[in-house]
Nucleic acid binder design. Structure first.
Lengths: 336, 336
DNA sequence: GTGAAAGCGCTAACAA
DNA sequence: TTGTTAGCGCTTTCAC
């Protein structure tokens, strides 16, 4: 029935000490006798004392709060990134609060103002897509780390998944399973994520003296429909294909669909890989889909770590690319 | 280059007035001359003054901040709910911050403590699934609204989608398109969402003197795989079926898959409906999928409204069920 | 080891 | 209309 509105003064009074002593006792300072400490803690307990962080923040000029401003409409990456950030921050006793700009500049300004006036200690900005985004500059007066989408300003701190490496890994894996006639169906060509992954694929093939089936990357859109369309066209013109690297799980689902309709065995005749390792899509795939996990939690964790480092004074500018992980499943198994 | 660390005192000094007057001017109080107001605003502008909300909060004993504690792992409902809440709150100049407990009791406690010590004015609790959840009680000392999943305590305030009505609407729609041999394939039987939707379906059929094909609801799990399995079994045993109501879009996708494999025309022979209206799944469905949208943004908006009402003193206890919307697409079209 | 006093940035009476 | 004075709840010197 307590409304947790008791203050340090109340605690001090109940413990029969001054507020100064109570404060020290509660904060675990050394210069307090064991007896006093116990009395104060008991009093705090009795009164259901919840320290007022606002008052503390204003006194020490730090809030112990990180902001996470996201532009992600679906929460597909921002939630995992938030979790990772919370993990890293939780260890340092900080809290992370998320707000969503919906990719809208007005809302972004609104939230920045709200966060600034609440004196957060640092900010993580999560992009709506993988493309570099305009820097927020330094006017906020607090350190900023860009996650998922890097800042265009190289002197800012950015943490993003390594799409190039992801493209490489998936290709290397396919070669290792004995495939060599590999095609690449992916999303919109002006997305840097699509470009980077494609580059990774190309470089690995090049190194083996191989080239893509169809001699080019099939750019299109990030949809199942495109995956189906492209896959149909592909098997028509290049029946020799023995592996298809899809630029996303969504596209991969379309590819799988098309191949099943054509009676093409996966992975017997053709191996298929996705990208995102997104459970809702992965779970229902037939066969289960090999995919690349961008480790968003790790991205969030590193972003928070860098941010806390910067708050403590150590700025590490530039883009940090985090390793993605290939998750191997049925769609790329070797058949005997 | 400003670090936005100027205070009201600085502004007042620069404008040549007292802090009290500066405060009044900035807050648009009436008892300030137009000239003074302008001077103060100019000074604030010059200094890039960002008011310290912490100080304000501590003085007025209100933070203008709402917490949104979610248990949703994927962000599928919590993000839309957050957006709705932000819309409602934004109108009232409040901010909403989200934190994620990942369905973990320890984290929940941790966040509750963090939010309480930051003295948020109210809290929205978003459940991880639709089942009623244990009340947090009244010990937090601030009003709480439960969203998506209601509280078990009827004296708490809850805002949830009306699953029963959704089930009714979808059934009514199918009857209107001339279907009468309707089957229902849904998820886990102990989920109240599954139960409520099924009840809605049953009641509408009853009223028409009809009953479900197979004479029962096919409960299973929330997966594409289950949708496929169940649909296969269904057309085997009950080839007369002319409509399948799926309990989720995921299940619906499985159903569509199975029907296509069987060469059953959708919607020509059988109509299919989903539930969730979840874009990632809806977008790739063939044919496009009729589904029920639970209007999460609206849920968030109402939750925030109720919360703000409660903060202002008007508590409306009980469960408020918000209307869901049927979104009609190709999978239920009438064929001639 | 403890407490009085000042101060963090702001608002709110109440005078002037 | 404006300024003075007290706080809000906490931390932090610095004497005691």
């Amino acid at each position: 029935m307590n409304t947790s509105r008791s203050s340090l003064k109340d605690v001090a009074a109940r413990a029969g000490v001054s507020t100064a002593t109570a404060s020290k006792a509660l904060n675990g300072r050394s210069d307090v006798s064991e007896a006093t400490r116990r009395k104060v803690h008991a009093a705090a307990q009795d009164l259901d004392f919840v320290p007022n962080e606002l008052a503390r923040s204003i006194a020490v000029r730090q809030t112990g709060t990180l902001g996470l401003l996201t532009h992600d409409l679906e929460g597909r990456f921002s939630l995992p990134i938030l979790m990772g950030a919370e993990d890293a921050a939780g260890a340092g006793q900080m809290s992370v609060f998320l707000c969503d700009s919906r990719g809208d500049a007005i809302r972004e300004q609104h939230h920045l103002k709200a966060l600034a006036s609440r004196r957060i200690d640092g900010l993580i900005v999560v992009g709506g897509d993988t493309d570099p985004r305009k820097s927020l500059g330094r006017n906020l007066g607090i350190p900023i780390v860009y996650a998922y989408a890097p800042s265009t300003d190289e002197s800012d701190m950015s943490v993003i998944p390594d799409n190039y490496q992801g493209g490489r890994d998936v290709t290397t894996h396919l070669l290792a399973t004995g495939r060599s006639k590999i095609a690449h169906i992916t999303g919109v060509d002006y997305y840097s994520a699509a470009q980077d992954r494609a580059q990774g694929v190309a470089d690995v093939l090049d190194a083996q003296g191989l080239s893509l089936v169809g001699s080019k990357v099939f750019f299109g859109e990030w949809s199942e429909q495109w995956g189906r369309t492209a896959a149909h066209a592909l098997v028509d013109k290049h029946p020799e294909v023995d592996a298809i690297i899809a630029g996303s799980d969504m596209i991969a689902r379309g590819v799988l669909d098309a191949l099943r309709e054509r009676g093409v065995d996966v992975p017997g005749k053709v191996a298929v890989t996705g990208y995102d390792n997104w459970q809702p899509l992965i779970a229902g795939a037939r066969p289960s889909l090999t995919s690349v996990d961008m480790n968003f939690e790790l991205v969030g964790r590193r972003a928070a770590e860098k941010l806390m480092g910067a708050i403590a004074g150590t700025v590490e500018p530039g883009i940090e690319r985090l390793r993605s992980t290939l998750v191997q499943r049925g769609s790329t198994e070797i058949k005997f």
